[in-house]
Design a protein around this nucleic acid. Structure first.
Lengths: 165, 165
DNA sequence: GAAAGATAGTTGACAATCTCTACGATTGAG
DNA sequence: CTCAATCGTAGAGATTGTCAACTATCTTTC
């Protein structure tokens, strides 16, 4: 690993006197920490909206790929087929998306976002943008672009990414 | 596991056609994506070691804060008291840590890492470092330092962080 | 110094997810 | 036509987190 210098800072959690110790040396820890906060904030901001775990990401993948099959969706989101069934069930029940049998292959269900689903997505994306802004306004535009690039470069280290939202 | 295929899964155009759509615009998405891969890799690399979810982070917090109480640990790790009980139960059963009654306040259990626990931690930290290196070698030293700083700056946007591992 | 209330740890009931396996329908290869 | 693979579905089981008691201690208050 890298940790060249031995500048030993006392790393504590805000007001409690708890130290993080070696955990603090790891990027993964920092990533998780922020990501946790972000998703917590997002969850809080959408508490009234009946959000289920993979629902938002699934819906937005469907929106970006009209006619996608459930199987493809499963792989894209990184969930098991059986979970995708439940999610699509709920999407359909709430009329955010619809299943249509594929005419060419009658085993497949082609998925499409309804207008209500589009509206729902717009709302959630707006909330998400707001949530992120609360944190990102700490960075300049240039820094933000750089951060994006670094994260992408890291992600490309994986030969077969697999989106896993 | 890193390769999440249920059966044989060709490296073919698995996610070739799938677009991310607006999801791709968000930093949180990129964070989660990498963080997911990292923890998946870490889980795979430690599959033989009986890792339970909060166990590693809890143990390392205890190591960094000898004598910490279970309550403090709960808050630090961001888990419910009742889960912490289970985790400490397992830590004790595996002789990685011990509970000792506090002499000043007999309600509290002061937690300490055993030598075996220290060894265990060393191993896991080594694995974690390896796991991260696989991704981080894409970045130069300078970029890595910058990334750290940007992430920290983002995190400090929260007045009352709350570690939540 | 005794009663009332707060706090630490524990337990168990419960709900939400994810994993795994199996099954019917459909397709495609031979 | 036969047989294997794929898509969607369903259900059993494990894991994990939430929540509401309950005990034993401590602290506050009168």
């Amino acid at each position: 690993m890298k940790r060249g210098g031995s500048k030993r800072e006392e790393v504590e959690a805000a007001d409690s006197g708890i130290k993080l110790g070696r955990l603090d040396e790891f990027i993964g820890f920092r990533l998780r920490r922020i990501q946790n906060q972000l998703s917590r904030d997002f969850a809080a901001a959408t508490a009234d909206r009946n959000m289920r775990s993979g629902l938002f990401s699934s819906l937005s993948i469907v929106a970006a790929n009209p006619g996608i099959s459930q199987n493809e969706l499963s792989k894209a989101v990184g969930l098991d087929k059986s979970i995708t069934v439940q999610i699509v069930d709920e999407l359909e029940k709430r009329e955010l998306a619809v299943r249509e049998r594929s005419p060419t292959d009658r085993r497949r269900h082609a998925l499409f976002v309804t207008e209500a689903g589009q509206t729902y997505l717009d709302e959630l994306f707006a909330i998400l943008a707001e949530t992120e802004d609360a944190v990102l306004h700490q960075l300049t535009r240039a820094e933000l672009a750089l951060l994006r690039e670094l994260l992408d470069r890291m992600y490309l280290a994986y030969d077969e990414p697999g989106i896993s939202l």
